[in-house]
């Protein structure tokens, strides 16, 4: 009997690669056309990049919460966007109160610290309660169960916020502290953008140090590799899981404050899109990978700001910025076609 040679042309892969290649080609042609037209000035490009980095930093901070939890429990905490929203909302009350009594103006630095602390604390609390109430009882359930629970918890948190605070958009009282522009002649940056970027970098470095150099950080890494063996080493696995949620919450709370610095408003649905985008960023960078989440967030933020203008203006598409989410998610699809485990992801994580 002649041996059958298993030659198979993987049709799906072929289609995917064609789609991927086509999208990249379209983007490249668009970029060339746009730059050829020269309608957008260099300083506008620069502003777009800075705004992209600022937004990307916020995504990155939220994405870290997804990736940390995934690294330890192998579940996607879809309620993480709501952890972010609750931080933002609670800090709105603090900010509005402080503003009312004039504290925002008389003592702006202390007021900002109070607002930030409120957001971080409440986000942490929500994240920890989420783990304790919604996820821990399902620790050994099939993987689909905590996923559904996460979506349920997300809706629960959204609509309790709506029930308590209404569905209106509330303007965040501005901090006079961060008004103004730094102008170095060749380079201009809004102070609030700069604060966002520096704060995010600081937090990410602190997290990196924590994970790699501290006892608890080492324990987190051990738990993410093997819970049973981690317990054999004397690690209280439940406590490490709570700690992980708490850290994710702290980062989401600080992200919430940075987000309100950029957008100056809160409402009950504000967690949804940043949550999805940050999840996208985490997948883009390779879910479970901390540096990946940071890089994924930055890439997504920059693409969202620069992408529509760069790729679409050349095709004379009206108001390309409306399509920023299309660009962002197309990039996700592209990355998943060519690198299914994300930019820095390990194969075993897929």
């Amino acid at each position: 009997m002649p041996a059958r040679r298993p030659i198979r042309i993987d049709a799906i892969k072929l289609i995917l690669w064609t789609v991927g290649g086509g999208l990249i080609l379209l983007a490249l042609i668009g970029a060339v056309l746009t730059l050829g037209q020269g309608r957008i000035s260099p300083s506008s490009w620069q502003n777009l990049v800075v705004a992209g980095i600022a937004l990307g930093s916020v995504y990155a901070l939220i994405a870290l919460g997804y990736t940390l939890v995934y690294g330890i429990l192998f579940m996607i905490n879809f309620a993480h966007g709501e952890v972010f929203m609750w931080g933002a909302f609670s800090s709105w009350f603090m900010a509005a109160g402080l503003n009312e009594v004039g504290f925002m103006d008389s003592n702006p630095v202390f007021a900002f610290v109070l607002v930030l602390a409120t957001a971080m604390l409440i986000s942490m609390l929500v994240a920890v309660l989420l783990e304790r109430i919604a996820y821990r009882p399902l620790r050994n359930a099939p993987r689909l169960v905590p996923l559904i629970t996460a979506i349920g918890a997300s809706l629960f948190l959204q609509y309790t916020a709506r029930g308590f605070f209404g569905s209106g958009v509330r303007a965040f009282p501005g901090y006079n502290l961060f008004e103004g522009v730094i102008d170095l002649g060749f380079f201009r940056i809004d102070i609030d953008d700069m604060v966002v970027i520096l704060a995010a970098i600081g937090l990410m470095l602190a997290l990196y140090f924590f994970i790699n150099q501290t006892r608890t950080g080492r324990a987190m890494r051990a738990v993410s590799e093997d819970k049973d063996v981690a317990a054999m080493m004397g690690i209280n696995v439940d406590r490490i899981i709570v700690t992980t949620f708490a850290i994710g919450g702290l980062l989401a709370g600080s992200a919430a404050i940075l987000y309100t610095l950029i957008f100056n408003q809160v409402h009950f649905f504000m967690g949804f899109l940043p949550g999805i985008k940050a999840f996208t960023a985490a997948v883009l960078g390779g879910i479970g990978n901390i540096i990946g989440a940071a890089i994924g967030g930055l890439i997504l933020g920059i693409l969202e700001q620069v992408g529509p203008n760069l790729f679409l203006t050349g095709y004379n598409i009206p108001s390309p910025n409306q399509l920023q989410d299309v660009i962002a998610f197309s990039v996700l699809v592209l990355v998943l076609i060519f690198r299914p485990s994300g930019l820095l992801g390990r194969k075993e994580n897929v």
């Binding site: 080492r218 324990a219 890494r221 051990a222 590799e225 093997d226 054999m232 004397g234 690690i235």
Partner: peptide
Amino acid sequence: VSKGIAHSPEGRKVFSRMSVFENLQMGAF
């Protein structure tokens, strides 16, 4: 563990993404 029983499991189960020294640190956790 802290009562004085240490378990070296089947299949070694070292923390593969950690260095040798970090593995030893984990042992003393």
